[in-house]
C-alpha cells in the first residue's frame, strides 16, 4: 500500500506550520522525516494517519490494505501512550478488543506479539514497573498486534537514553526486516534516520516545506560494514548541511521564546 501526500498545508491560527507538501511513501519502505524542531514533522505525521485534519491538501492511498490488517494506519508514539491502569498484555490487547476476535484468538494474538517483541515474561507488569525502553517495546508490540499496513512512528526513541535507543533500534530493525511493513519514521536524530530509512525526507523550518529527499541505497542489514559506514558518513554530512543552518536558527528561536516567558 502506498501513501500519497498531496499539497498538504496546515496552520494553527495565524501560525503556518506546513505549506505545499507533496510526498509519496512507497510500499515496504521506511521513509524518515527529519527537520529542525518545530518544523511540523509530527503535524505532518498526524495528518498522514488521519488524526489531524489538514488546512489544505489531501492524503491518498494507493492499493488496499492487507485483509488481515485490523488497523491499517498505526501509530507508535514518542511518549508511548500506554494506559497506566492496564498491564502489558492489557495494553497490547486494547486495539484488538473491539474487533470481535473471540477470547481465544485475542489471547493467541497477544501472546504471539509479546513473544516476538520479547515481552512474554513481562505480560502482567504495569507500565510504571517498566523502564522507558520496555515501555516503548510495549508500544511497538501494540502496534504490531493489529497487523498495520503503514506504521507511523513519531520520534519513538527520543524519550529514551542513548544506550536504550541503540538497543531498541536494533530490535525494531530485526522485527521490521521480517515483516517489512511500510513505515514513516519522524525523528530529529540523523543517526536514527541513517540506520533505518530507505529514504530521508528533509523539511525546512517553519513554515515546513519539503526541501529534499535523499535516498540511501544500502540495505539496512548491510549498513554496519566499513564501506557502508563511509558512504553513510558522506550522507550524514550532506543531510547535516541541509538542516544545520536552520537548526541553529530554530534553536535560537526557542531560546528567545523561552526568554520572553522568563
Amino acid at each position: 500500500m502506498e501513501l500519497v501526500v498531496e499539497k498538504i498545508g496546515h496552520r494553527y491560527g495565524e501560525l503556518v506550520a506546513l505549506e505545499g507538501i507533496d510526498l509519496a511513501v512507497r510500499e515496504d519502505e521506511i521513509l524518515a522525516l527529519i527537520g529542525p524542531s518545530g518544523c511540523g514533522k509530527s503535524t505532518l505525521l498526524g495528518i498522514m494517519g488521519g488524526i489531524l485534519r489538514p488546512s489544505a491538501g489531501r492524503i491518498l492511498v494507493k492499493g488496499a490494505p492487507p485483509a488481515d490488517s485490523l488497523n491499517p494506519f498505526t501509530y507508535i508514539f514518542q511518549d508511548f501512550a500506554l494506559l497506566p491502569w492496564r498491564s502489558v498484555e492489557g495494553n497490547v490487547a486494547l486495539p484488538l478488543e473491539h474487533h470481535g476476535l473471540g477470547a481465544a484468538e485475542l489471547r493467541r494474538r497477544v501472546a504471539d506479539v509479546l513473544a516476538r517483541t520479547g515481552l512474554a515474561e513481562f505480560r502482567t507488569a504495569y507500565p510504571k514497573q517498566l523502564s522507558g525502553g520496555m515501555r516503548q517495546r510495549v508500544g511497538i508490540a501494540r502496534a504490531l498486534a493489529v497487523n498495520p499496513a503503514i506504521l507511523l512512528m513519531d520520534e519513538p526513541l527520543s524519550a529514551l537514553d542513548a544506550q536504550t535507543r541503540e538497543l531498541l533500534m536494533e530490535d525494531f530493525l530485526a522485527l521490521w526486516l521480517r515483516a517489512r511493513t511500510t513505515a514513516v519514521y519522524v525523528t530529529h536524530n540523523l543517526a536514527e534516520a541513517l540506520r533505518l530509512a530507505d529514504r530521508v525526507a528533509v523539511l525546512s523550518r517553519r513554515p515546513g516545506r519539503l526541501r529534499d529527499i535523499v535516498a540511501i541505497d544500502i540495505p539496512q542489514a548491510d549498513r554496519a560494514t566499513p564501506a557502508a559506514q563511509a558512504q553513510l558518513a558522506g550522507l550524514h554530512d550532506r543531510l547535516w548541511g541541509l538542516i544545520k543552518a536552520e537548526a541553529q536558527i530554530a534553536e535560537r528561536e526557542v531560546i528567545a521564546a523561552g526568554a520572553s516567558y522568563g
Binding site: T74, Y75, A81, L94, H98
Partner: peptide, 11 residues
C-alpha cells in the same frame, strides 16, 4: 494523548 491513541486505533 491517550484519547488520541485510542482514536488512532479506531476504538
Amino acid at each position: 494523548n491517550l484519547i488520541r491513541m485510542g482514536q488512532s486505533f479506531n476504538l
